[in-house]
Nucleic acid binder design. Structure first.
Lengths: 193, 193
DNA sequence: TTTATATACGGAGGGCCCCTCCGTTTGGCA
DNA sequence: TGCCAAACGGAGGGGCCCTCCGTATATAAA
């Protein structure tokens, strides 16, 4: 927050930016491997950074949790554009659905840690919902326009399917199963010859 | 557990029993005043007991949380019998409903701390549900038999009403409001002349 | 009553964590 | 190249969890 929008008192130093990114990455890895209770000192260690640096960038635990979440949402949305740049629209949609699974895993890991944010968390989730809706609409639209998938597909249906797949994330083996189901879903979406 | 059912290798010492009770009491007070994250050392301090003693009686945090919960349920159930011994059945029911509020508060405070018990927690809750169902059935039955309340009252309806009152426990002022509503409910239940 | 001993007690101490504070280093502009 | 705000790192105070073990005592047997 405070670091994101800085008035030009000087400039944002490159090392500061780098460490910030490292910390977010380390936090994500820590959540994935240790769970939501991973210690802040552990995150700093993983990032190869002093504990003081962590606290300067993220004054509270929630701050860093939120940062991880934001970055994940952004990467998911950016992923749509990126994939459309290098793959056929149909393939891009397919690949993006796989990306979505990773996002779900993150959300699940991070949700608990966000519990204390009371009101703020729901606003955060709401904003991310819009971002994702936009991304899926774009992907589906392009895929239809290109004739890769059936023309009567509602983007929201695709999103609902993905959300549906997310129930029961947590059980072991969930991700493998979800990936298979995504392949099936994609087959079903494809335009018939 | 291990302490509850002891084979007669010797006897359960009186001081041990006393401290166990003190610890449960202190834990309840701690949950009420500090919340579910109250530290075990704080509980021991409140009980006027060394930390070692706490750990001997309750090897894990869950163990003491569960003990508080069990005691609360038992007191609620025993309360029904006790109240019936000293008051008219109608008054006993009225007073017992007030007791129920205290139980709800405890459950709310303790529920989060039970999160880690995974399967065990639901079994614990289920057992307590039966205990409470029995108590309310007895109270209502006696009150009807005595002509204190209308004869067409289903005990489960009373229980449902009480559970309904419990929604929104957490907001400040909830308990006072719930107590007033219990008076209203009791008026409604009373047999007409 | 006295004694023996299983039972119970208490708290020091090791390890980890949170968070602050401040002396040191360094990136970037002039 | 030199300056200095920006950024760094980690020691240190305080807390919590949990174990371990020497000490005290309730109780049953003598």
């Amino acid at each position: 927050m405070s670091v994101e929008s800085r008035e030009p008192g000087r400039t944002q130093r490159a090392d500061g930016l780098r460490n910030r990114e490292r910390l977010i990455g380390a936090a994500k890895a820590g959540f994935a491997e240790t769970g939501p209770e991973v210690s802040l000192e552990e995150i700093a260690r993983r990032a190869g950074v002093g504990i003081g640096t962590l606290y300067r960038h993220f004054p509270t635990r929630e701050a860093i949790v939120e940062a991880v979440y934001r970055r994940e949402v952004r990467q998911l949305a950016d992923g749509a554009t990126r994939l459309l740049g290098s793959l056929s629209p149909g393939e891009a949609l397919h690949e993006w659905m796989r990306l979505f699974l990773d996002y779900v895993a993150t959300k699940r890991l991070i949700g608990p840690a966000l519990g204390s944010m009371v009101g703020g968390a729901s606003a955060l989730y709401a904003a991310s919902g819009e971002t994702i809706t936009g991304a899926v609409a774009m992907l589906v639209g392009r895929a239809i326009a290109n004739g890769d998938i059936r023309a009567d597909v509602d983007p929201m249906d695709v999103l609902r399917a993905l959300v549906g797949l997310s129930y029961g994330a947590a059980e072991p083996g969930w991700e493998a199963s979800a990936r298979r189901l995504i392949d099936v879903l994609m087959d079903g979406l494809r335009a018939r010859a």
